[in-house]
Design a binder for these strands. Structure first.
Lengths: 186, 186
DNA sequence: ACGCGGAGCCTATGAGTATTAGGTATCCTT
DNA sequence: AAGGATACCTAATACTCATAGGCTCCGCGT
């Protein structure tokens, strides 16, 4: 029987794609094995069970998200950086719903994901410095922006914006609120 | 053998408590049946399977949350109403993590939950009227507040605020941002 | 007072899941 | 070419939800 030639990275990547396409809840070892042309016990050679697989997806997702944010922030400051980073965050989350949901789910349970998520926060803290915020002020600002953006993205993905008003306009206004709040912290 | 004397409401209530105590992912028919002193197939007399059970928890949760928000909003307007409603939202979600998570999970799939969630939005729209916002402006305001509050609550529950800064202060500042943004929409 | 119908719970069973144990075949290195 | 490590397999266990069909108790109507 021909070998599929898998390794951990390939398994995790395929799992992330499966989660994005079918939804996190339908990411099962059986489905993943089927997609890879392999029996499910074979996956244990590359990954230590479903929980480990999910944690690995979360770590990879955090790094990819951080890279996307860092690219968006490059060469910008202040309101421009805020809008670029927030837009990149939203775009990445919408493009990779399964990966993004995994980060949220694993944040509470997987230490490795928490550490990887710190990289995302790093980029946001850098944006705060562009507003002249340091130390605790920067933390408060980062948390507020992260809360708003995360909440918006989650609600948008869940189809939470069903009333007759353009979500793009809501997004714009929310960013304006955040920008003004960061410019003049209470 | 003695009957347990269950009905749909009792089953759903027990399931909601189980979800709050053990976490949504550990809400299984087997565990619920065990807690109720019954075999799992017996639950199908009261509830149409796990998906239906989750949807019912979501609907009940939306109503309880709406009632909590409405009580907080009663007799208040403007910034005072915003703070009271947001505080009630956060407190309810933290006190009922399983129920709250169920709402989020079912929003995307269960029509009944979506309808029940509209009641929560109603209360927020009323708060917007206290800011003089009507129509689309009120919708944008509601979405921004909901995004920020929901995001904050989710991150707080996931243990996402690990840096050395008081989350209460972040919460305060975020509400100030929202209040100012609603007072003077762009 | 009595029996009958329905409600409430049961056992038995099936299909799905993750996971472990242990065996086999393939690939790479030496 | 030999040998060891690696990749994959089958088999089996223990959990999950879900369905089918049966038994028993309770209350209602006669």
């Amino acid at each position: 029987m021909a070998r599929a030639g898998l390794d951990t990275a390939a398994v995790v990547r395929a799992a992330a794609e499966l989660a994005d396409e079918e939804g996190v809840e339908r990411l099962t070892l059986a489905a993943l094995a089927g997609r890879l042309g392999v029996r499910s016990p074979s996956l244990y050679a590359h990954v230590d069970g479903l929980a480990d697989l999910r944690a690995r997806i979360g770590v990879d997702a955090c790094r990819a998200l951080r890279d996307a944010l860092a690219a968006a922030a490059a060469g910008r400051a202040g309101a421009e950086a805020l809008r670029a980073v927030a837009g990149a965050y939203r775009a990445w989350a919408l493009a990779h719903p399964g990966r993004y949901a995994t980060v949220g789910a694993e944040l509470a349970s997987a230490q490795t994901v928490r550490e990887a998520a710190a990289g995302v926060v790093e980029v946001m803290l850098a944006v705060m410095r562009g507003y002249g915020l340091e130390g605790e002020d920067a933390v408060h600002g980062t948390r507020a922006v992260r809360s708003a953006v995360h909440g918006f993205v989650v609600l948008e993905q869940q189809g939470g914006f069903r009333m007759a008003a353009d979500p793009e306009r809501t997004w714009e206004r929310m960013l304006t609120m955040l920008d003004r709040g960061l410019r003049d912290p209470a």
